[in-house]
Design a protein around this nucleic acid. Sequence first.
DNA 1: TCATCAATTGACAGCGTTGTCAATTTTAAT
DNA 2: ATTAAAATTGACAACGCTGTCAATTGATGA
Lengths: 341, 341
Amino acid sequence: MTTIHDVALRAGVSIKTVSRVINGEPNVRPKTKAAVESAIAALDYVPSHFARAMKSGQSKTIAFLTDSVVTSPESIDIAKGVAEAAAEAGLALFFLASEPDKSPFEGPSFDFIRSAQVDGLIYATHSHREIEVPEHLLEKPLVLVNCFEFAGRVSSVVPDDRQGGYLAGQLLLEKGHKNVAFINLQKDVVASRLRQQGLNLAFERAGLPPPHCVFLKHEAEEAYAEDLAQHVRTIMAADEPPTALFCGNDKTALRALGVLQSLGLNVPADVSLLGYDDFTIIAELLSPGLTTIAIPYLGMGREAISVLQDVIEKRANNHVRQAAKIQIPGWPVHRKSVATL
Amino acid sequence: MTTIHDVALRAGVSIKTVSRVINGEPNVRPKTKAAVESAIAALDYVPSHFARAMKSGQSKTIAFLTDSVVTSPESIDIAKGVAEAAAEAGLALFFLASEPDKSPFEGPSFDFIRSAQVDGLIYATHSHREIEVPEHLLEKPLVLVNCFEFAGRVSSVVPDDRQGGYLAGQLLLEKGHKNVAFINLQKDVVASRLRQQGLNLAFERAGLPPPHCVFLKHEAEEAYAEDLAQHVRTIMAADEPPTALFCGNDKTALRALGVLQSLGLNVPADVSLLGYDDFTIIAELLSPGLTTIAIPYLGMGREAISVLQDVIEKRANNHVRQAAKIQIPGWPVHRKSVATL
DNA sequence: TCATCAATTGACAGCGTTGTCAATTTTAAT
DNA sequence: ATTAAAATTGACAACGCTGTCAATTGATGA
């Protein structure tokens, strides 16, 4: 491996001067600088990350922890956003998969975070929810993604589910749907309440009563499917069945579509279908293509890096930084499953 | 930060002795060892990864590069397998997202690999294919996943598509399907030829002629869908239509199912449907559940770490290691879409 | 031309760790 | 009890880099 010494030797200067050139410090004669730069190029020298980190105590490295988000296709974009933004910011990124059945905040992975003197942490969850952050984690700059803690000690970046629900309402109303049924996620899911609030708000502002809303039960795959089918059948059997069905996520919408088809109902001719997530695989593959509300996973990931950098900087300067909950808005994705009345 | 000095001070020994205890070296009196260990525990000491890496030149860190696999749900399991196995092996893992429109083997990310003295590299692709490995990459221990180079200079871990095709043939024959149509992937896809070979072999061994096989055209989403629909209709319009349709992947199978249903054909009563990939999201969600051949992504990821460790070790001892192409077998996943005749 | 001051450069220590080798202690053998 | 050998322990250098501070060089003005 070529070191700073090799470069210094070749350029005929001291290692300190090489260091100055590398770090763009002032007070280096242009001629000297040129000599050093050509030596660096000739030797294909890259400064050792470790030596720098050891000296400065700043590793320029952050770690990305997750309950399982990296391995879940729905929210893989969080990781993508984090990775992109980190690269742009010149930060190295460790991905740590937490071990199953264990808190992600302990075990060998976490020892590694400490031993590698990671500058900061990003913790992302699979679903939007509240978490408990162990005391000892607060030592390090930390940003939560897709989750938050009520104590408000840690900054978090979450989807704006209320806005998303509102968006759904707006979209449906624009297309003329006033009689809407909402097959919401399980009642204990954070997003489910928020989206309902947003949806209801949109209807309220239009001078309409809130849409009929049912919650799925939180159960295994089979039970969930049965539960859903039941709901769809009940809803569509009403005296005045809704003109549109808004589902808590795209997967539910996919299932609902199957049930509707089995009832001989055509989407969107007989009933419109609106999803949530913009889970592309499902949404694009369905016929008709599923109109849905996108969750801004990519943007959340990017924002997390930005917030984390801020936290790190503030911490370094001994400023207290007010923890904040940052809500990133989603957007509607128009495909074919919602008809205009 | 607590350092080895703090521990030594507290335990009343020299730093070298602490080092011995940490690294499990012999010739430390049990009493001394106990004293050091209790000091470590009391101070919550974790050795600095950087200092160690600098000293040893071994970073115990590997990098995972990919064209886009991390962000594609189909093969996210490669990443998962790599991450799991790396953690078990005590290796830290860098995930580097390659920049769009750029070779993953250049740019700032790659400089980082060099500066961080990464011990080895794993490069995974989204689809099973041949790639060109730039000369300068061969400096570092490298293992390819889901791709390979014909030059054979680099070890690779790939799915055994031939075996997978054979498995598909076996499965169909076991269920009594002798008249089968294979809607294969695009002709230029590596997997497509191999699977066809495997499938044909299974039929040959059963004393049957090879199944009818058509290839999809490699085109945009819409054209692809149209192309597929055409094929399905043609195939099913034959004088003696096949009793089973084997699709090149689950996505295609999903589409094909739609076409079959639109033709008024019931799966699996009228015709059986076999996919490939075990892309759970699709396969489980379909009704009927899609019988398919699983691609061993997780196992491939795990195997990659094992191979990489081997390469690193051999390299360290100046042994030449014969590069190898390691094929990991898939397996059939029985759901409901293939009926017994 | 020479003193003065600013700009440029380099010597050296130290970040936290482990390898080398010498010093010390313990054990075993007489 | 004494001594040689073995086991245990520690002092110190070095890994590649940057910060400190001193030394050197060049530029400026009288």
